[in-house]
Design a protein around this nucleic acid. Structure first.
Length: 637
RNA sequence: GCCCGUGUAGCUCAGUAGGUAGAGCAUCCCGCUGGUAAUGGGAAGGUCGUCGGUUCGACUCCGACCGCGGGCUCCA
């Protein structure tokens, strides 16, 4: 009798031709799926002898994808019942739930979602067994043709197998690789969330389908928690907090879409970021440069931007008969600085850094708050070095990037290494050397990363680091990329030890990415409650009655003299409760309450934005406490 | 750019079988001198996204356009 080993160590013997379900039955486990040597399998699949299997219960995190995939099928079944003539595309589980793409005969709206949800509940209540069926290719094709499932037919044509896997539940059958739960009755806790357009196969030249998003969980509590989290995420949205905290605004009707106004408070945060950034760059061996916003057409011809990046650039302007373009990147200017004199091998590495404002054309549909805009300031730098310095430079810059990001409170990164694409410039040996340097640097830092094979730019391999916004969407902040193109195009050289001209390596890098995007992510990361060193207003002094206004001003003056950003709220006519609520909503770290008692004793009652009331404190003590919090650049108040 | 949704006061929103609009907050004025998340009263504030059509009359119905939101796509 064949034997199978369970992850818990138990060995189970079963009949010849048994399935994982039989194993589960023998072991007395209520399993809904099987994890066979790390691979997710359908519980109905025949066993593979000698393998180690983890039998997954509905509540195991590994079965979440199976649950959601089945939920997607139930969605499709419900839609089929309600909308005759609908065509099915694909319906996978995704990180927070699932979706299914449909081609509806006539458009549906959000109002249709509750109806669909009701029908789904009915299908769950019917508790239909989910069966796996294999059809020979010809039969599969016939079935799909009969149903008019053109999208499924296209998918089928790309499946190499002769035995085609389908799943059937009640009257519904779908081309699908699985795995699925044993029955629809197990999908009890789900919700449809959104409706959106999506191109068939993600291809803008093909038809637009209707995508229905939903989510599903094994328990009502987990679903509830997820819905609460979505609510919380909405509250953290930088587009909501920006105006609420008076940080920035965007006016596409009067100023233009994707163009950001930094209000005094947002500008203050930006100033703190920039000051810190410059300090760290000077310490890190960078030299600061400033370059213009526009340049002649010939510059962009030489750089190749007009050939390869024209659709990202704005139309030229005419200056005394010469064409000028507003810059989409800073590199040609930095290169011009490099080339302004002859460079020796002794000068390298050279690291030019600039908070350079660039403008790029983005289609209106992709603009998104501060996270995707048309005018933005990159924290840009170009490192020009000798081949023998590449290794160390890459390690330095990556370590530098991570240390910056960590100071801003980020600790979870996802890194990507993009390698040589089919179309590329430069010598393969250079690519290999650069790619390996990048890989070793990531590994030396102990980062998790994935390799995007062939997804590097044509001019060089790169590392990208993504950070997520409040909805867990990943946005690229840090990018470190080699460039084997521009040094060639601009004929950059240095004189080597041998007295001859050599071609330097060039590395582009942006660490925070752009100040706009970084600020947006930062707002969401902190939910608007910035750490003390970044808070636009660090402390407010609140007089209880108008009698304490002079004292409040005196206290504020002492804090200001100690370098603390402080406001005295002395407009009068407001109760203490009112002022505290205002300060809380503005997420100001420290509130100094001054009533008659405090004025008489040279103290202030200190309240933190956490809600903690520390009672009367000597002013000097408050000042040193705040100064320590600023200097630490940490989250503590 | 494409699909769906949406657009009324600075903000959040209500409203009408078609007869040119209303609340709360914010703003300004007045009273209250208050002890840890909203003091009471009053005033001011809108060509109801824009343009066109239907109508005696449109914020309301129809069309087009623009903006915004959610996605897709693209991203040197």
């Amino acid at each position: 009798m064949p034997e199978v080993k369970l992850a818990c160590g138990q060995v189970v013997s079963v009949e010849e031709g048994a399935s994982w379900a039989d194993v589960a039955a023998a072991a007395g486990i209520e399993a809904v799926a099987a994890l066979v040597d790390g691979e997710l399998r359908d519980i109905r699949d025949p066993i593979q002898e000698g393998r180690t299997v983890k039998l997954l219960k509905l509540t195991d995190p590994e079965s979440l994808d199976v649950l959601r995939h089945t939920a997607a099928h139930i969605l499709a079944q419900a839609v089929r019942r309600l909308f005759p003539g609908v065509k099915l595309a694909i319906g996978p589980a995704i990180s927070d739930g699932f979706y299914y793409d449909f081609d509806f005969p006539s458009p549906i709206t959000r109002e249709d979602l509750p109806r669909i949800e009701e029908e789904m509940k009915r299908i769950v209540a019917e508790d239909l067994p989910v069966e796996r069926v294999f059809l020979p290719r010809a039969e599969a094709e016939e079935l799909l043709k009969k149903e008019g499932e053109v999208y499924k037919l296209e998918l089928l044509s790309e499946i190499p197998d002769e035995r085609i896997s389908f799943y059937r539940q009640g009257e519904f059958i779908d081309l699908c690789r699985g795995p699925h739960l044993p029955s629809t009755g197990l999908v009890r806790h789900f919700k449809l969330l959104d409706l959106a357009g999506a191109y068939w196969r993600g291809d803008a030249t093909r038809v637009m389908l209707t995508r229905i998003y939903g989510t599903a969980f094994p328990s009502a509590e987990a679903l509830e928690q997820h819905l609460k989290w979505r609510e919380e995420a909405r509250r953290r949205d930088h587009r909501r907090l920006g105006p609420e905290l008076d940080l920035f605004s965007i006016h596409n009707d009067t100023i233009g879409a994707g163009l950001v106004l930094w209000h005094p408070k947002g500008a203050r945060v930006r100033h703190e970021i920039e000051t810190f950034w410059k300090e760290r760059h000077f310490e890190g061996g960078y030299q600061l440069v400033y370059t213009p916003h526009i340049g002649r057409a010939r510059l962009w011809q030489t750089s190749g931007h007009l050939d390869f990046y024209r659709e990202g650039m704005y139309s030229p302007m005419d200056v005394e008969g010469q064409e000028f373009y507003i810059k989409p990147m800073n590199c040609p200017f930095h290169i011009a600085i490099y080339k302004s004199r002859t460079r020796s091998y002794r000068d390298l590495p050279i690291r030019y850094a600039e908070l350079g404002t660039v403008y790029r054309y983005e289609r209106s549909g992709v603009l998104h708050g501060l996270l995707r805009v048309r005018g933005f300031t990159q924290d840009d730098a170009h490192i020009i070095c000798r081949p023998d310095q590449v290794e160390e430079e890459i390690q330095r810059v990556l370590r530098f990037a991570l240390s910056l990001l960590r100071t801003f409170g980020f600790s979870e990164f996802s890194a990507h290494l993009s390698t040589r694409p089919a179309k590329f410039v430069g010598a393969p040996e250079d690519w290999d050397r650069a790619t390996e340097a990048l890989r070793r640097a990531i590994e030396a830092e102990g980062l998790d990363y994935d390799v995007k094979q062939g997804e590097g730019a044509f001019y060089g391999p790169k590392i990208d680091i993504d950070i997520e916004d409040s909805l867990r969407r990943a946005w690229q902040l840090t990018t470190i990329q080699f460039d084997f193109n521009l040094p060639e195009r601009f004929d950059m050289t240095y004189v080597g030890e041998d007295g001859r001209e050599h071609r330097p390596y060039m590395i582009h890098r942006a660490l925070l990415g752009s100040l706009e995007r970084f600020f947006g992510i930062l707002i969401e990361h902190y939910g608007g409650a910035f750490p003390v060193w970044l808070a636009p207003v660090q402390a407010v002094v609140l007089p209880i009655t108008e009698g304490q206004i002079p004292y409040a001003e005196e206290v504020a003056g002492k804090l200001a003299a100690a370098g603390i950003r402080v406001e005295a709220w002395t407009r009068g006519g407001k109760t203490l409760r009112y002022l505290i609520r205002e300060a809380q909503l503005q997420k100001i770290p420290y509130m100094l309450v001054c009533g008659a008692r405090e004025a008489g004793s040279g103290t202030a009652a200190l309240r933190l934005r956490t809600g903690e009331d520390l009672g009367p404190q000597p002013i000097e003590g408050i000042i040193s406490r705040i100064q320590a919090a600023i200097a630490s650049r940490g989250p503590e108040l």
